[in-house]
C-alpha cells in the first residue's frame, strides 16, 4: 500500500514538473515583457556605434533614440534602482560596452518603498540580479522566492502579463524597437480625461506612501549606481521627468518632495561624476495633452521632451 502510494506520488510529481517546465518555458519565451526586454538585450549586444548616452529606468524613460543620437534606451517596465544597478553592473562587465554617460531618472516615485518592493518580471531579471546578495542587503528572506519564481515559476501570479500578451499580439502584433526605444506607444491624450485629479491621486497612491520614504534600500542602490559609474569613469545625468500638475500636487501631499531632493543632492555631492541634474518635472504642467496618464508622456510629449533634452545635453561639457 505504502509502496504503491509512493509510486503514485512520484508519478504525479513528475507530471507536475513536466507541466510546470512547459508553462515556464512558454512564459519565458512568449510573454510580452520578456519579448520586449530580451529584444532590448539583443539590440544592445548588437550595438556597435559610439554609446554616448545609456538611459536606464522604468516606463518613465521615454528617451526617443531616433532624436537623441548615439543613445540606447535600456529602460524596462517597472525597473527600479536595484534592478538598474545589477543590469549596469552586468553591462560594464562586457567588453566594449562602456557608455560615456548614464541617464538616470530620479522621480518622486523612484524612491518610494513600494517601488523598492516591486521586484517584478523575475524570469527576465534572474540573469542580472544576485538575489542572494539582495536578500542579505534587504535582510529579507522572501527575496529568495523571487529567485525561485524567476528560475522555475515565471508564470506564478503573472496572469495579467499573459492577458497582456494576447492583447498585444492582437492589437499591435510585431514588436519594433530602435536602440531600445519603442515607437508605438499609447497615444491617449490625458487632457481629454474627465477625472484627472482622481486618476492622479490613484496613481500617486500606488507607488508612494508616507511611511519609510525615501526607501533606504533604494537610496543605497542609487548610491551604488553612482559609485559603480564613478569606478568606471562614467558620467551620470540625473533627470526628473515631466509629470502632470495633478500628479505632482497629489504626490507632494503624500511625500516630502523638497526633503527628498535635498537628500539626493547631498548624496550626489560625493560623486563628482554626477555632472547634471536636469529637473523637468514642471515642464509641461500646462500641457496635459502631452501625457497619456498622470505620469507618463505620450509619443508627442516624448518627442518634445527628447528634443528639449537633446538641446540641454549639447550644452554639457
Amino acid at each position: 500500500m505504502k509502496r504503491q502510494f509512493i509510486i503514485r506520488i512520484v508519478l504525479f510529481l513528475l507530471a507536475l514538473i513536466v507541466a510546470n517546465t512547459v508553462l515556464d518555458q512558454l512564459y519565458k519565451r512568449f510573454v510580452v515583457h520578456n519579448l520586449l526586454n530580451n529584444t532590448k538585450d539583443e539590440q544592445f549586444d548588437a550595438y556597435t556605434g559610439t554609446l554616448k548616452y545609456l538611459s536606464l529606468g522604468n516606463s518613465h524613460n521615454c528617451v526617443n533614440t531616433y532624436i537623441l543620437e548615439n543613445s540606447f534606451n535600456y529602460g524596462s517596465p517597472g525597473e527600479n534602482y536595484i534592478q538598474s544597478y545589477y543590469k549596469l553592473k552586468s553591462i560594464l562587465e562586457k567588453p566594449g560596452k562602456r557608455p560615456e554617460n548614464v541617464i538616470l531618472f530620479a522621480d518622486i516615485s523612484s524612491f518610494g518603498p513600494l517601488t523598492a518592493d516591486r521586484l517584478e518580471y523575475n524570469s527576465y531579471w534572474i540573469k542580472y540580479i544576485d538575489y542572494f546578495e539582495l536578500a542579505k542587503i534587504k535582510k529579507d528572506r522572501d527575496i529568495l522566492s523571487k529567485w525561485l519564481e524567476g528560475k522555475f515559476f515565471s508564470f506564478a501570479g503573472n496572469y495579467k502579463d499573459i492577458q497582456l500578451t494576447f492583447i498585444y499580439a492582437i492589437k499591435i502584433g510585431k514588436l519594433e524597437l530602435h536602440n531600445g526605444y519603442r515607437p508605438h506607444r499609447d497615444f491617449k491624450n490625458f487632457a481629454r480625461e474627465q477625472n484627472r485629479t482622481k486618476q492622479a491621486r490613484a496613481k500617486a497612491n500606488i507607488y508612494l506612501s508616507k511611511q519609510d520614504y525615501p526607501d533606504k534600500d533604494i537610496l543605497f542602490y542609487f548610491e551604488k549606481i553612482l559609485q559603480l559609474c564613478q569606478d568606471h569613469g562614467i558620467n551620470v545625468i540625473l533627470i526628473r521627468i515631466p509629470v502632470t500638475r495633478e500628479y505632482f500636487e497629489e504626490a507632494s501631499n503624500i511625500v516630502p518632495v523638497d526633503e527628498l531632493y535635498e537628500q539626493v543632492q547631498v548624496i550626489c555631492a560625493n560623486y563628482p561624476n554626477v555632472t547634471r541634474f536636469l529637473d523637468y518635472h514642471d515642464l509641461y504642467f500646462d500641457h496635459p495633452e502631452y501625457f497619456f496618464d498622470p505620469d507618463h508622456l505620450n509619443p508627442r510629449g516624448s518627442d518634445l521632451f527628447t528634443e528639449r533634452l537633446k538641446l540641454d545635453l549639447e550644452g554639457l561639457p
Binding site: 504525479f12 507530471a15 507536475l16 507541466a19 510546470n20 508553462l23 522572501d142 522566492s145 519564481e149 515559476f153 508564470f155 506564478a156 501570479g157 503573472n158 496572469y159 499573459i162
Partner: peptide, 20 residues
Amino acid sequence: RWSIYLGFIFFILIFGMINQ
C-alpha cells in the same frame, strides 16, 4: 483526476496573488 488536480494547481499558481 490528475488533469483536474494539475489544472487546479496551475490555476492557483497563475491566478493567485503570489506575494505572501
